[in-house]
Design a protein around this nucleic acid. Structure first.
Lengths: 348, 348
DNA sequence: TGACAAAATTGGAACGATCCAATTAAGTAC
DNA sequence: GTACTTAATTGGATCGTTCCAATTTTGTCA
């Protein structure tokens, strides 16, 4: 249709003012006369003018109002919720976001970061792919762009962080299982050389230590953080000379796998074996049996991460900050504590 | 650190060439001598130069390599998968994406579209919020920016579309229920004045007509497309003078609700009543009983939508195109056909 | 060596906004 | 009506890149 786009100069000409005046109107400056403002605004609407942010950002002073978000697995509803939380805050703050899914690939993550940098993002929130190194974030940090790492850690990187309280969550969960009478409680699933894993195991260990119970290494059975990993872990656990009667699982996906594995072995989760997950994904509530799990409110975390980043962007000076997001245990059926009608009907 | 960013002029000076030569190197032009290219590239690395895409896009000819994606509900794993599929294709094609969640709000959707326009997106993929009108997309379309609508329709908008084959999927599902011996098959859940609803009901109707069966309007019971809606719909269905013995549900969420409602009425889904869903969300496989449903492969749809958009961007001339994505029936337990160990153990 | 083609390089003018300093218009007080 | 303050408006110059036309360098052949 329009062979060339409408610019400030076009409206200036049409409205009979200078481009400077139009610019002032655009940024709602109080310097411009009411009548002039009205006339310019009318012309803007009439000609269908579209503000060109790219051009505006060219001047060195301006910061771009674009922020980058990279998550390692958007198909995981935990991260999808996280992203939605960020989206909310960024939206309302007038920012627009490049959201990308690294799919756990550091190469892809590197590409995306480079691309975002070229587009001049004002900040980055990153849920790092496994194996992310401080060097991957170095150039961003060096050029003064605030970075917030969420969920997972990037060792050695001087960036702000926002993690859930893995330690306290795991501790609470295990305390609950102890209170239910369990004396041999395993930790199942998850990849062992990650910070998250270490923290959750630490919580498990401390809860047992509190009441003078044993925390043998044989009861920590790592695997992948997935359903399949959960199945594998519980299979190995049941072969132990002193098999556990309950388990804290690395995350909900693994916990579902543990339930599958238990059934395959003729045991009913919740009745014959206590299962507790971590994350509180949406399916946890509606699964059968409903999963007892540590809720981390991913959407809330996303919101907080976004607020933290915005604070840093506005502050100018980037001062890395570490925030720990609290969690709470949600007791449902799978630990054996619940006794809702639903559970009764199925397991009685 | 660096008080001002490094520009082509800086590298030109440092490498002892002109900015034009640097520009040619940046776009890998064959016009530049090998030795010069090497020297320039070395300088680029040395000074830590970052390409400024905003500045490059300023020249009118350039198209921005940014595309917009808006989904109506990212917390729904169907749409998350859809987004991931798009991300894959866009990534590999060297595009970067503004991804936003309208959360079913047309106001928010409008804002996001405006913002994306100001940032100069090359195209938009939209899974429209309910109530989206052609007028909302008019300015984009008028300025020649390709738009692809996915999943849902925008009536009257001259944009490309990519929908799943609701008609064929519903037809297949009902045929399957007929083959299982059902003679009174209802259509439960969903909001009636939507295209998707109409198409699925049409498939239901035709499948019944094929074998000369009745398709009374009383057997079509709309409600919301949610778990609660499913409960409400089955309650009403069971009160009919000739209650159905099976149902095709609007989507999986409604189907789960129907299962809940059946149990509340003392009937076991899969044994006493055949239930079929639509979408094949992740939970469908692991629910009890596992849900028979029509699988639409959201990730594949996302990929196809992205490819369609890229094709339109490259073609220059925008010629709206309508693509229908095929679906397939996944038979599990809830329809009464399956008889896996799992089902037996729980419902025997 | 000179003539000419091909290869490589280059300055300057865009692109569309902002911002500064300078100018003009409008008020106010005497 | 003049002097002065305040309110509005306005030309450049600028941001970092691309692109065009023009220029310089190199290569080839008689």
């Amino acid at each position: 249709m329009n062979k060339s786009r409408v610019t400030v100069i076009d409206i200036a000409r049409a409205a009979g003012v200078s481009k400077s005046t139009v610019s002032l109107v655009l940024q709602a400056s109080p310097l411009v006369n009411e009548a002039t403002r009205a006339k310019v605004n009318a012309t803007i609407r009439e000609l269908g003018y579209v503000y060109n942010r790219g051009a505006a950002n060219l001047r060195q002073s301006a910061s771009s109002r674009i922020i980058g978000i990279i998550v390692n697995d958007l198909t995981n509803s935990f991260f999808a919720e996280l992203a939605v939380g960020m989206d909310m805050v960024m939206q309302s703050a007038g920012y627009v976001q490049f959201l990308s899914n690294s799919a756990e690939s550091i190469d892809r993550q590197r590409e995306v970061i480079a691309s975002m940098r070229e587009h001049g993002i004002a900040g980055l929130i990153l849920s790092p792919a496994r194996g992310t190194e401080a060097a991957d974030l170095k150039p961003l940090v060096a050029s003064g762009i605030p970075v917030v790492a969420v969920v997972r850690n990037v060792v050695g990187a001087k960036v702000s962080t926002l993690f859930s309280d893995n330690y306290a969550g795991a501790k609470d969960a295990v305390r609950h299982l102890i209170a239910l009478g369990h004396r041999r409680i395993a930790f199942l699933g998850g990849i062992s050389n990650t910070t998250v894993f270490t923290e959750r195991v630490q919580g498990w260990r401390e809860a047992l230590a509190e009441v003078g119970m044993d925390a043998p290494d044989t009861h920590v059975i790592p695997s992948t953080a997935s359903r399949a990993g959960g199945v594998a872990a519980i299979e190995r656990a049941l072969l132990l000379p002193d098999p556990p009667t309950a388990a804290l699982c690395f995350n909900d996906a693994a916990a579902f796998g543990v339930c599958d594995g238990l059934r395959a072995a003729g045991k009913e989760p919740g009745r014959d074996f206590g299962v507790v997950g971590f994350d509180d994904v949406i399916e946890a509530e509606t699964a059968v049996p409903a999963l007892t799990t540590v809720s981390v409110d991913p959407q809330g975390m996303g919101r907080r991460a976004a607020q933290l980043l915005l604070k840093q962007i506005n502050a100018g000076r980037v001062e890395p900050e570490a925030i720990v997001s609290s969690v709470r245990l949600v007791v449902r059926q799978s630990c054996g504590a619940g006794s809702s009608d639903k559970t009764r009907r199925i397991f009685a």
